[in-house]
Design a protein around this nucleic acid. Structure first.
Lengths: 144, 144
DNA sequence: TTTATTTAAGATAAATTTGTCCGAATTAAA
DNA sequence: TTTAATTCGGACAAATTTATCTTAAATAAA
């Protein structure tokens, strides 16, 4: 469904958020370790998210990643997915047609639209804050 | 969402079905041309679907691919997806955790389950026959 | 039986995604 | 100002997916 890059990005964001709730800034090594993702690859993805102002980074000693509380309540999972995977998940045709719309739909268009609308709605109404608080309270886990 | 292999497989099946409705057996070249997919790759995927008894093939002159009418009404899109992409789309965790379930859910588990259940239901209730008749009647198109 | 036509199967190649490595830039503290 | 710790950026490498090519096997017709 999502690319690996996207999975790592979301997991990293959730972990950083849980730590930011404690006012703790985290280094990339911590992020990788606590989200069960490869460090160098996760670093690259966080660089991308930093550029998109989805997460905040500071270089040097005592540096690392953080998300401020206000921002954390605004950021929807859809923004992370969009920054990493683009809009293919929202607009791509199920059968890969480059032009697939209500006028000239692929055979699965209508049926697929319903599923995707629900997916989109879910991603657009779920915040990093929600997922982070649920994780923190032990209602979910980040690692297998 | 689906792999390219899966997209090609579904499109090929729909096209073959429209021709089988006319009692016309089709060669791989026709399939590729009329479904807008690469010929050799589509051939390989149809080989896989043939092994799974999802489509019927005949070698030699006047050979090609066909689906009999009865079978066409039984085959669900889910079977094609499963034959090509496996069950990852149904069982894979949104965040890639190897063990993600109700007991130890990833942070997106519940929200994702809802979307996936709908996707699964859609794939399990749509037959090749339905998609082929809709295509044949001009309600949809296979090529951009 | 020979020939032409078709799918089958496996080797190979190209493209994309996933992943690592290393040096540069930044910055806090000594 | 020097040093150490950190992210940043780009080159590189590995793995997977996508795609092609070539030869074999099957089969219908002449």
């Amino acid at each position: 469904m999502f690319s690996k890059a996207c999975e790592y990005g979301i997991k990293a964001m959730i972990y950083i958020a849980t730590q930011s709730l404690n006012h703790t800034r985290v280094k990339i090594g911590d992020v990788a370790k606590n989200s069960g993702s490869p460090e160098a690859f996760t670093a690259k993805i966080l660089g991308l998210l930093t550029k998109h102002n989805i997460v905040n980074s500071l270089k040097g000693p005592y540096g690392g990643f953080e998300i401020d509380l206000l921002r954390m309540k605004q950021i929807k999972i859809s923004e992370i997915v969009f920054a990493i995977d683009g809009d293919s998940i929202y607009n791509g045709c199920a059968l890969g047609l480059s032009e697939c719309n209500n006028d000239k739909p692929c055979p699965m268009h209508d049926r697929f639209l319903k599923v995707r609308t629900e997916l989109k709605h879910m991603l657009e109404t779920t915040t990093i804050y929600e997922l982070a608080t649920e994780l923190k309270s032990g209602n979910s886990v980040l690692m297998k």
